[in-house]
Nucleic acid binder design. Sequence first.
DNA 1: AGACTTTTAAATGTCAGACAAATAAAAATT
DNA 2: AATTTTTATTTGTCTGACATTTAAAAGTCT
Lengths: 243, 243
Amino acid sequence: MKIDPKKPADLSAQIAQAIRDAIISGELIVDERLPSEAELSEQFQVSRPTVREALKRLAAQSLIRTQRGASGGAFVNRLSFEGAYSQQITTSTLLLSMNAVSFDTACEARFALERACAALSAQRRTADQLATMRAEVHRQSQPGLTDEAFCASDVAFHRALVDGAGNPVLSYQLAGAVEAMQPLMNMITFTARSREAIIAFHNQIADALEDRDSTKVDATLVELESYTRQLAQDVAQQRRNPA
Amino acid sequence: MKIDPKKPADLSAQIAQAIRDAIISGELIVDERLPSEAELSEQFQVSRPTVREALKRLAAQSLIRTQRGASGGAFVNRLSFEGAYSQQITTSTLLLSMNAVSFDTACEARFALERACAALSAQRRTADQLATMRAEVHRQSQPGLTDEAFCASDVAFHRALVDGAGNPVLSYQLAGAVEAMQPLMNMITFTARSREAIIAFHNQIADALEDRDSTKVDATLVELESYTRQLAQDVAQQRRNPA
DNA sequence: AGACTTTTAAATGTCAGACAAATAAAAATT
DNA sequence: AATTTTTATTTGTCTGACATTTAAAAGTCT
């Protein structure tokens, strides 16, 4: 691990990159302890605050964790799927909001990816995952549910559908697409009728998954996508031209 | 923006979270300048090094950028799709390597997602994107290409296919899945015959996209997936039982 | 007056040294 | 032997200082 003091970049950025490379290349393995901050500052010939800034950069990416006290220090993190979700969701959410992604674009991406999981989910979904979906549908049908709670349950339903594919890589990738849509979905006011329609679609999907009928799952998702986009369009139109 | 000095978490982590929340909620908008480090340290009642650690955490997530000099400071970044790619790829790569994801699992996820783009790509691919794909196939057929260069070209080919869908959200999500596979693919030694077979598949895909024949693109991707998995299986078997 | 140069001020980047707090291991005590 | 105390190590935080970069202000010359 070497840094170039003549580079234009900050020293802390260079040090962070050097350690990051060491982790990626496998030179540093999971749960291995990094040298103490004092040792690192000597090794890289920089001050301790500079080393600390580098370590905080890595901590922000959950590449390392730190522990105080004797035999404490910085340790290489096992980057878990669970832990990577939140970061993925934060990034995706900001990407959508900062780049003025249209509802249609986000919706299209989300359903395209979800349909990719549906075929696998029809084959492999467990009874447990099916039960989760049923439970969420039931929650959605309860009166007095706020729009936000309805959306949250919707996300949970689709998460279960995706998890049904039994492929953690797919679940991880989809987490961003599905959850990042939630702020956009929250802008929709759901009428009693539209909730009913969505619940009907969800029931159809659950039924099809129970029957392991991938064709029907796919067809229903297509319908649900089209319905969702229509709903958003109506809301947008109503804002422009209130009755 | 407030922090709780009695919380167990590090002050720099709390400050970073407070600023992060302000960005996500829209309280701080793109290109807005944050208060100077001195002002922030006064505002949060902490020292400047602590504020700096917080800012470095945010910089590591590309939420802010810093500029030196008069009228410099920390500015809220526009999180661009391009900029988010690298982080997504780093994370995905580490996830795969640290969690011992099998080649089959990663491969399945990648092709499932890619097929989700294929239908859209058949409708919308531009002449330019098609030309990129043709060029990459041509590069792949050149003799003397290293395995790594072959893989890199393979990635470029599939990136063009995905970009053909004309949906930046899809391209972003797929970047992780496709690029993160590369280290795994690099473990495969490509024989002249296997390269030929892959190139044939690529040509078929390009032809089908030229004809806007989504069914054929999908079918060919299925074949390519099965071929790729077979290839990996053969390599694994040969390692266990060398001839 | 206008174009160029110099100065200045503000901001981040870096350093050195210190103390506080947490923690585990070692030493002392019961 | 079990418990308590001490000690050493390590991260967390603070203070104060200086270096470097940069844009704007001030000054100078044509």
